[in-house]
Design a protein around this nucleic acid. Structure first.
Length: 470
RNA sequence: UCCCCGAUAGCUCAAUGGUAGAGCGAGCGGCUGUUAACCGCUAGGUUCUAGGUUCGAGUCCUAGUCGGGGAGCCA
């Protein structure tokens, strides 16, 4: 007997050959005409498959009539055209075996009623059985597959940059320490009072979880030309927002022989490609998001795919914001050249002015990282942020400073230890090339695509300050 | 980390300082090729934790924990 996934069964044509379907019960409806309708779902697609269980089944009274949401079952029977209106086909069951009961239906956390996402986070091991989290999981997978396909089709190589890093040159972000030292009994460094002696630690020096694979992947770009990373990233920042995680997945392409324009074009093509993939492959889940989560879930993606990304320099963006203020727009934070754009400013630009993803370029050097390429004006750098409606910053990228003398000047200005960057500086000594890249927070892409409101609900087991459950 | 708000039945929420309720879910029954099913009955509570005020605290005060909204940091 063939075993079909729910997805396959939904698409099967009526046949006289019995088949087998397995899954978890979503709902059971009884008819005194002597049948029960059992909707089962195995996660293979959004929809449930209707199994029609006649009272002639040997276990009908004892088992079928007691099935509740969450029970696991194995049904066998023929696929027939459905007499009801909710589905094209259904199974006329000749057997419905219960694999696992729900011990106490009264307290089953994912019962057949509406639950808040906040509550479901507390039962993250079961929330994926709900419509919403099943859909998120499938869309997330679709996006991840599309990421690799996009790069593979364009000749990029996936580079596995390290998770653990002993280099202290990854920049500003707070890092998680990786250590095997006994925290109850720390040996102090004789030469640095108040500091631990890391000579005895596993790596013989301080080590951390990576906050970015960029510096490492630049080395591969300067040999393989087109590369990207896609892996977990860690930030120990005490960020408590719907857009931040302590552990998240980041995609970081890096291209050699390329400038910021190439970088922006790559970013735009990349985002559009992944959106197209979701629209093409996950229509069932996207329909659900549009109906229940965010009315514009589908139309927003179609709009982005069809229209270009807006491009504007930081300087022009500041002018635009100042003009808006002159026309009566009230800013909680004043707009001033040289200062970071506030969330309210970014939202205004992307949600109210352009109403589409917007790339802001050429930021003042003092609010950006040391490795970004200096412009001719000596004041701005070749940086870009891709801002999207509803999310804010989806992508941050730049053309990298490939000129050693310029790079050294920036390291000195920012009081960074040049020696620590010896291998990064080597790239500029030995056959340096213009290159560029960006970082995209994968969960923010999932947020944007699904219309979900909180980043904790688009990753299976979110890690945030004070929360590493499951 | 800062500002604001919240925590009561399995879940979502009510309850003037004075006997803690409803809807959903669950159990039982009725009805029906059902599909957010519908109708009836039943069960279900350490009101987040620790102190305090009061004759009396779910309600007021203090501290803490956790959650939400906004901000910062960023992806």
């Amino acid at each position: 007997m063939r075993t079909l996934s729910v997805e396959q069964a939904m698409k099967a044509s009526p046949t006289s050959d019995p088949v087998r379907v397995r899954g978890w019960v979503r709902t059971r409806r009884d008819s005194k005409a002597g049948i029960s309708f059992v909707a089962i779902n195995d996660g293979s697609c959004f929809d449930n498959f209707q199994v029609v269980a006649p009272s002639s089944l040997g276990n009908y009274e004892k088992e079928v009539l007691h099935l509740t949401t969450g029970c696991s079952v194995e049904a066998e029977g023929v696929i027939v055209a459905s007499q009801g209106g909710g589905q094209a086909v259904e199974m006329q069951a000749s057997s419905l075996r219960v694999l696992g009961w729900v011990e106490d239906p009264d307290t089953y956390p994912a019962s057949a009623k509406r639950h808040t996402f906040e509550y479901l986070r507390e039962v993250a091991h079961l929330r994926v059985r709900t419509n919403t989290f099943g859909a998120v999981a499938r869309v997330r997978n679709c996006l991840a597959q599309a990421v690799h396909r996009f790069f593979h089709e364009r000749g990029f190589f996936w580079v596995h940059t390290p998770i653990i890093t002993a280099s202290d040159c990854e920049g500003a972000g707070e890092m998680f320490r990786v250590s095997t030292l006994d925290l109850m009994n720390i040996k102090k460094d004789a030469n640095k009072p108040g500091h631990a002696d890391f000579a005895d630690d596993f790596f013989g020096k301080e080590a951390f979880l990576t906050v970015s694979g960029q510096l490492n992947v630049e080395t591969y770009a300067c040999a393989l030309s087109k590369v990207y990373t896609f892996g977990p990233t860690f930030r120990a920042e005490n960020s408590n927002t719907a857009r931040h995680l302590a552990e998240f997945w980041m995609i970081e392409p890096e291209i050699a022989f390329a400038d910021l324009n190439d970088d922006m074009q790559l970013a735009e093509e990349f985002v559009k490609y992944t959106l197209r993939a979701v629209l093409a492959e996950r229509g069932d889940d996207m329909k659900f998001f549009a109906e229940r989560i965010d009315k514009e879930a589908i139309s927003r993606l179609e709009h982005v795919v069809e229209s270009g990304f807006q491009r504007i320099t930081y300087t022009d963006a500041v002018k635009l914001l100042e003009d808006a203020a002159a026309k009566g727009k009230k800013w909680e934070y004043p707009v001033k050249w040289g200062a970071n754009l506030q969330a309210e400013h970014e939202r205004f630009i992307t949600e109210e002015v352009f109403k589409k993803p917007t790339i802001v370029t050429d930021y003042p050097k003092d609010i950006k990282a040391f490795y970004m390429r200096m412009n001719e004006d000596g004041k701005t750098v070749r940086a870009m942020d891709v801002l999207v409606p509803g999310i804010g910053e989806l992508i941050g990228g730049s053309q990298r400073e490939e000129r050693l003398d310029h790079l050294d000047r920036r390291l000195e200005e920012m009081k960074l230890d040049k020696a620590a960057y010896w291998w990064y500086r080597d790239l500029r000594k030995y056959g340096t090339v213009p290159h560029a890249g960006f970082g995209l927070g994968f969960e923010r892409l999932v947020l944007f695509v699904t219309g979900m409101a909180n980043i904790r609900d688009v990753i299976p087991f979110p890690r945030t300050p004070k929360n590493a459950a499951f």
